[in-house]
Amino acid sequence: MKKAILATSVLSALMSGSLVAAEVYNKDGTSLKIGGRAEFRGDFIGDDKGNEIDGSMKNKSRFRLNVGGETQISDNLTGFGFYEAEQSVDSSGDNTANKQFKQRYMYAGVGTSFGALSFGKQDTANVQVSKMTDIGTHTNTQKDFINGGDEQVNNTFAYSGKFMDALSVQASLIAAENKNENGYGLSGLYTLPFGLGLGLGYSANDNGDGEGKANQVIGGVSYTIGSFYVAGSYTQGDLNDSDSGLLNKESFTGTELAAHYKLGNGFRIIGAYAKSTVKNEVSGEKSDANDFVEITGRYDFNKALRTYVTYKMNNLKVTDKNGDHVDAENSLRLGLRYDF
């Protein structure tokens, strides 16, 4: 990494902006890009949580807008910033407008010849490993357990560096406002020349004053050959390591498998499986947080416009409107996404 611009290219992997983002300004070493997406998502039969849809369709559509800028200070120093917000749809029948934008990312940083440092609301270090299997409509369940391993986390200091064009190293520190809520993480992702990727990460955080601690280990492996990609990830750790006798000592495990195959002419098929379980270490009781199989057919008109249909077979139990414990509903999702 002889130039700072190489360090900021590592950080671009953290950005959730569109690959077709438009450069609207570039002068005297300073550039500005605007991107985002408009995506219709309609759920039929059941929603993504497994609850039955009483009517015909639940609207899960969303609109994202992001702005990213970069300025070249010298050969070895670059400054950058990124912001992204999302607006969803109120699916109720009274056509109530959703006027609120949800802040997803907002951070600024500097890129050096040794890597990039950024500060703000952003992904923690473990996310580069959990994203190895995040290629489906309902995937990326491995990030949901603890704050120290999640995405879009406030008050995060992050480092990202790439070495030997094969090893991506990330580190993160959460400097929380509240007492005893700090966290940290460290991960590495090594990609071999023949398409094999190996990822490993560790994160931990305090749950609050007197509320114990949480930790997570995550590992991932992927393989790419031609038009075929397959990946798997496994994670385990503690949601709460406190042994106060109040039945709040909990651990978790999570498995996610995903694959896709590009059929050509814009078509591809995606399959995924995910299961995560939470265990109360005092009572021994277990409960599943995720347990599903999804199959997706996708067609890309071009790099900006795609359509897809996903069927999610949900194996969970849910509580219905009557308070009964019933089998979760499967879900059929239709989508149309435009990136800009």
Results as ranks from 00 to 15, higher is better:
197 G>N: 12
315 N>G: 07
206 D>A: 10
150 D>A: 14
314 N>C: 02
211 E>Y: 14
219 G>C: 05
251 S>V: 01
246 L>A: 15
277 T>K: 06
334 L>W: 10
15 M>C: 02
34 I>R: 07
281 E>V: 11
36 G>L: 01
241 D>Q: 11
183 G>L: 02
333 R>L: 10
115 G>R: 04
40 F>R: 05
181 E>L: 08
243 D>R: 13
153 V>T: 06
274 A>H: 06
260 H>T: 11
154 N>T: 12
324 D>C: 00
317 K>M: 00
264 G>M: 13
229 Y>F: 13
323 G>T: 11
278 V>H: 11
113 S>R: 14
301 F>H: 01
126 N>Q: 04
183 G>Q: 05
245 G>L: 12
243 D>W: 05
252 F>L: 10
8 T>D: 06
7 A>K: 02
160 S>N: 06
313 M>D: 01
264 G>T: 14
189 L>P: 00
72 Q>L: 10
67 V>P: 08
103 Q>F: 12
262 K>I: 14
79 G>C: 03
49 K>D: 12
171 A>R: 04
1 M>E: 11
64 R>V: 01
27 K>C: 01
94 D>G: 04
306 R>K: 07
108 A>Q: 14
64 R>T: 03
168 S>Q: 13
270 I>C: 07
257 L>C: 04
42 G>N: 01
92 S>A: 13
335 G>S: 09
